[in-house]
Amino acid sequence: MKRITALLTLAVLLAACSARTVLVADVDVLSFVDSSEVEGDLAVPGSIDVYVPDADDNLITPDGGQLVTQAPLLDRMSGFAARIAVEVRNDGATDLSVSGAFHLAAASDSANIYDGTDDLKLAEVELTLPAGATQTLELNVELDEDDPALDLLSADGFRVGMAIHASGNGQAHYRIAAFSLVLKARAFDLLPGN
């Protein structure tokens, strides 16, 4: 993610002569996720929670999620969007109840971005997955510049992650199908009085 820093700065240098020039970083987060973590099998012994991306090498413990840092305009974002899609297949013999929630947190919230302290749940979805069926948990978040959730974005960066809860008895296979962020900023927003 460090690359966002240089990219936005480079963009400022290139052509941010205009207040209306919007600098957009369209980040394919999924491409940075280790391939071994993109998909896997889970035993669902009644109830289980998993957290992606996995920051502490333990999928089932809440953690700091994905840190996005060092972009110079992070504290002046004029727009933010995120999309996460997780494909879940029920390999068991009974129905599974599956839900997902997208969390946005302050950069300092390194221990747990899912506990409601210094973080916000911005979107959630749930579905019932019959035995043998495959469905996709899809979360889309879009914040405009007036959204108070953007206060979590600071010059130090921010964190994102998705908590998935499954209940039932059996086996499930998951695959992260999409995880992308879109950050929008305008260099002139750094001017005093704006």
């Binding site: 990219l7 936005l8 963009a11 052509a15 205009s18 209306r20 919007v22 980040v27 394919d28």
Partner: peptide, 20 residues
């Protein structure tokens, strides 16, 4: 006029830069 939008597409495969 300056460009209205500069988009940096960032992925593990590299970086591409496009206009809006």
């Amino acid at each position: 006029a300056s460009p209205r939008e500069i988009v940096f597409h960032v992925s593990a495969d590299g970086v591409t830069v496009t206009d809006g």
